[in-house]
C-alpha cells in the first residue's frame, strides 16, 4: 500500500508552481491545450481535477472542455498509473500472433483488467495500439523495457522480476 500516494502529497506546491510555469509558457501558443496536458501528465503522472482546473483557468477555457479533451485521447489518464505500467500491444501483427492470450494471462495473474491498477499501486495494465515493434510480435512493454515474442507462459517469469 505504500506505493499509492494520496493526491495531496503528489500535488505538492513545487509541482503546482512548475505547472503555472508551463501554462505561462504556452499562453500565447495557438492550440496550447494538448501540449500543456502532455506536460502536466508528464509532471504529475496523471491529470487530476485540480490540475485540469488550473489549466482551464490559465488557458481561459472551461473545465468541462479540458475534461472533454483529456478523456478523448487515450494517452491522457485521470487515474494514477501503477509503479510498473504494463502495456500489451494489441496491434494487428501482435493480435494475429496471440497477444490477446498474453493479455488474458497477465490479467489473470494480477487479478485486474486492462485499464486498472492493482490495489497496492504496483502494477497497471494497459492494452495499447501498435507500439511499432511488429518484428517482435507479440510485444509487452513494462515501463520502458520491451519484451518481444511473448507467449502466455513467459508472463509469470517476467512479472517475478518486478516483485
Amino acid at each position: 500500500m505504500a506505493e499509492k500516494k494520496c493526491c495531496c502529497c503528489e500535488l505538492n506546491s513545487e509541482k503546482l508552481k512548475r505547472l503555472d510555469q508551463i501554462i505561462e509558457e504556452h499562453k500565447t501558443m495557438e492550440g496550447a491545450l494538448i501540449p500543456v496536458l502532455h506536460e502536466a501528465q508528464e509532471l504529475f503522472g496523471y491529470l487530476p481535477e485540480q490540475v485540469q482546473q488550473k489549466i482551464a483557468t490559465g488557458l481561459g477555457c472551461s473545465l468541462a472542455e479540458v475534461f472533454g479533451v483529456a478523456t478523448f485521447y487515450s494517452r491522457f489518464t485521470l487515474e494514477p498509473k501503477g509503479k510498473y505500467n504494463i502495456q500489451v500491444c494489441l496491434g494487428t501483427a501482435c493480435y494475429v500472433k496471440g497477444a490477446d492470450k498474453v493479455l488474458e494471462k497477465l490479467e489473470q495473474l494480477l487479478g485486474i483488467k486492462a485499464g486498472q491498477t492493482t490495489e497496492d499501486g504496483k502494477f497497471s495494465i494497459q492494452d495499447t495500439r501498435c507500439v511499432g515493434a511488429c518484428g517482435l510480435a507479440p510485444v509487452m512493454v513494462i515501463n520502458d523495457e520491451v519484451y518481444g515474442k511473448m507467449t502466455p507462459d513467459m508472463v509469470e517469469g517476467i512479472l517475478a522480476k518486478y516483485n
Partner: peptide
C-alpha cells in the same frame, strides 16, 4: 512538432487539424 495523444481518428485530415488546434480530434 505537435504530439498526438492516442487517437486513431486523428489520422483523418480534418481531425488532425482540429487536434492541432487543441480540441477533441
Amino acid at each position: 512538432i505537435r504530439l498526438g495523444a492516442g487517437a486513431f481518428v486523428c489520422g483523418e485530415e480534418t481531425a488532425l487539424m482540429t487536434s492541432i488546434e487543441g480540441k477533441r480530434g
